[in-house]
Design a binder for these strands. Sequence first.
RNA 1: GGGCUCUUAGCUCAGUGGAUAGAGCAACCGCCUUCUAAGCGGUCGGUCACUGGUUCGAGCCCAGUAGAGCCCGCCA
Length: 601
Amino acid sequence: MLTGFEIMNATNASQSSEGVIAQLKNRFEQALIAAFGEDLAGADPMLVPTSNPKFGDYQSNAPLALAKRLGKAPRAIAEELIQQLDVSDVCLPPAIAGAGFINFTLKPEYLAARLSAFQIDDRLGVEAVKKPKRTIVDFSSPNIAKEMHVGHLRSTIIGDCIARILEFQGHEVLRLNHVGDWGTQFGMLITYLREVCPEALTTADALDLGDLVAFYKKAKQRFDEDPDFQEKSRHEVVRLQSGAEDTLRAWNLLCEQSRKEFQVIYNLLDICITERGESFYNSLLASVVEDLEKVGLLVEDQGAKCVFLEGFQNREGQPLPLIIQKSDGGYNYATTDLAAIRYRIQQDQAKRLIYVTDAGQANHFAQVFQVARRAGWIPEDVDIEHVQFGLVQGEDGKKLKTRSGDTIRLRDLLDEAVDRARADLEARLQEEGRQETEEFIANAAQIVGISAVKYADLSQNRTSNYIFSYDKMLALQGNTAPYMLYAYVRVQGISRKGEIDFQNLGSDAKILLHEETELTLAKHLLQLEDALDQVGQDLFPNRLCQYLFELSQKFNQFYDRCPVLQAEDSIKTSRLMLCDLTARTLKLGLSLLGIRVLERM
RNA sequence: GGGCUCUUAGCUCAGUGGAUAGAGCAACCGCCUUCUAAGCGGUCGGUCACUGGUUCGAGCCCAGUAGAGCCCGCCA
């Protein structure tokens, strides 16, 4: 039981660092109960940013939704709610509008107080979650002995971003690279190499990945044509899975070779990930079959051990099986994925499993999740989610390919983005008669190029296909990485020009919000936590991009209309604080997208 | 045949059951003696694929139709 004093303290949360929406929601929930009783305890306050600035900053649609349930007119409900609602420390008096909306406008003093607190807060007001969840983000997952191509781009970028956001929110995140390092492709590759290049199987660095890819293609061709070769390859897989020493050594060399190449890409993209490939689960596969047998889900059909699925049919309208063990005794990826689910829940103790793969695997994951659920392997308190994304298409709307029709190597794609960024920058330097060092140019081009690729991907709703265009992603205006990097650079330009130390603006520094653009910017700065909460929940990084783009726009409007260095002292200090907060918010937000900033560009 | 995803401005795309559907690009018109104009302001641009349904209220939910892409028994 709270005392009156404690209730007042709990209510008077203007210095609290929770998100504005969360804070208003709390107050609203209390008012709902005070006005209409405990029955309404779970009712949704329906608090959202307003659809139009003329309605204020936030609105509640709850009175409309509750009209039927309470048997009262929406406006009357709004009236009663406002009576019970104490938000005077946060907002101007709430207004009832339209059919029964309640509109809230933040008080400038509240804004200034919150933003002042951000001044000494590296997290910019974003609280760590109270209940951290151990989370696994499974992403990137290239195949050994193949090069990373454009198909791995989205998984890598989106997965990394999701991991960064969840980590920042305070969750314990395990980033797993479920590489394809185990399966029939090794049988044929090793068999082929034994014939044509045996030294590759015993000597490190005898081949580079490019050669491996070429050998892989030839091996595949032989496999498809030559029954003898097929037989040898299958035998090689069995030898590998049973641990034959020479085959295992060859396999290890191939993996090591690929790993080095993958790392080049991960370094370029600034990706940190732990490899735990399919082979890791090899020893657990037999028990998956046994345990499915025990719970009575396993059915033998045409020699294969399967689980028949609910809600999936084949062409003839028959129930579709998920094959757990092939008729030749081998396992396939469904088995591995089931073993991985169990391992991640039981051994890793994960409470949230996130799989970042293309939408084409939606069926596969729905099937695997169904079987795991029916087997009782997914406890109530564990969430399992397939975070799917669409294809990367060329500007012709078809799957992205080189001019000659080959798959584009990820390495080449990234290099070209950097080359183009460099060409743009050099043209600009020439035009403006600027002289910069080679080091400056190389660094700026690198960051602009890579950021542009990442941002172009992350800023789209991931569920749809997206059209890859260097021209659009590197464009200097619009919702692009360069636009946002430039907003950040503008702030740093001010501090250089004015010889400002943002760390040391004086102890009496106060935020004053008089101009419209100052208020608008301040309000947006306060919404970072709400934006991150949403992405943490729904795993749509484009929402964070949208937030940062709007922040950049609002900063540029402020920059355009409010002189900083020429302003009178107290206003100059206040504006410097807004600049610094904007820059730090951009830097933090971009870092959560996996994008680094530049001080000059 | 079944499943999944998608269809919003000329183009590329946002859009959380709520008020008059938004950006960017392109086009056109303005704004640099002033912190980097890689910027800002403005104009133009909509049958939210179509038809029904649910709802006080639908671009959003449900059903159907059309179109696009992807997936569908021993590859991953």
